[in-house]
C-alpha cells in the first residue's frame, strides 16, 4: 500500500500526528526549561559556596 492510499484510507493518522507534534513541542520545550533550570541551580549553589570561601580567605 503506497502512502497516497494510506492517507486516503486513514485521514485520522494525520490528526494523531499533528496532535503528537503539538504535545511533543509544548512539553518538550517545558522539559528543556526544567533541565536548564536544574543545571543553572547547581551552578548557582556552586558559586555561592565559592563566594563564602573567598570571604573566609580574606
Amino acid at each position: 500500500m503506497d502512502i497516497e492510499e494510506f492517507a486516503r484510507l486513514h485521514p485520522i493518522a494525520y490528526v494523531h500526528l499533528a496532535y503528537a507534534v503539538v504535545w511533543g513541542l509544548q512539553f518538550g520545550y517545558a522539559a528543556w526549561i526544567a533541565v536548564q533550570w536544574r543545571r543553572a541551580g547547581r551552578e548557582e549553589r556552586r558559586l555561592k559556596l565559592s563566594e563564602t570561601k573567598g570571604t573566609n580567605l580574606i
Binding site: E44, L47, K48, S50, K53, G54
Partner: peptide
C-alpha cells in the same frame, strides 16, 4: 549566575 561570576572574577576567585 552571570552577576555572581562577574563579581567572583573581580575578586579573583578561582571558581569562576
Amino acid at each position: 549566575i552571570a552577576v555572581a561570576q562577574a563579581e567572583a572574577f573581580l575578586t579573583d576567585d578561582p571558581a569562576v
